[in-house]
Design a protein around this nucleic acid. Structure first.
Lengths: 109, 109
DNA sequence: TTTATATATCGCAATATTACGATATATGTT
DNA sequence: AACATATATCGTAATATTGCGATATATAAA
């Protein structure tokens, strides 16, 4: 099928999965790392930096934008992308909560 | 295409993406949460707990096992699954490192 | 040995993702 | 206005993921 039965799971489980899906591609990880490392928020350079076509980069940027992880502001002809610190912290917390749940007593198999 | 150009990215970027992909499904999140919450590592109950077919659950468990996040030990007729604390911590660190990189100076767009 | 129970794997159909050329849009330059 | 530059979107082909019925495997019970 390829279609996920979201109705079987909680809102939170679906949200975390949706966010994880955005992290689930090395190009998007690379874009995020590039945005973290370069204080200045460049966009077009990504096409040079990663070896992907412009259309592909744009598509990845849109997915990052859709979950609010990055935002872009038009800067003349080009677009300046950067990480949204608020959302970044939110997402960080979501993962932290999941990982923090374990271990509790930690002893079984 | 659907095929990812892994050769364009670093080992670490590819690994993190691969791990994120496993988190990128609500059923697998639900399985992990269930394993965290129940000290005892039950397996078959997952079929009851989530509303998915046995074959589907088994498939999700395999993906979790493949990246080492959980491990299963045969317990008579059934299999006892649980989170691998070592790998769990490793993966936690990978995400922590990514999130920790930001903000540095945090001011741009 | 036969039967029941639990889990894994196979094979398939439906859908999703990835990549990119072509093209649209929008701003700056001449 | 005409052109160049930067980015977004569309359409499409190739591949991946998801879900599950059917079936295989493996242990326990009768």
């Amino acid at each position: 099928m390829g279609v996920t039965k979201t109705d079987l799971f909680t809102e939170k489980q679906n949200e975390l999965a949706k966010i994880a899906k955005v992290f689930a591609h090395p190009a998007r990880i690379a874009i995020l790392e590039y945005l973290i490392q370069s204080d200045t928020c460049i966009n077009g350079d990504l096409v040079q930096e990663l070896g992907l076509a412009q259309a592909t980069i744009s598509q990845h940027l849109r997915e990052l934008k859709e979950i609010g992880l990055i935002k872009g502001s038009i800067e003349g002809v080009s677009v300046c992308y950067c990480i949204d610190p608020i959302r970044w912290a939110e997402v960080q917390h979501l993962f932290h909560d999941l990982f923090g749940g374990f271990p509790k007593i930690s002893g079984c198999c």
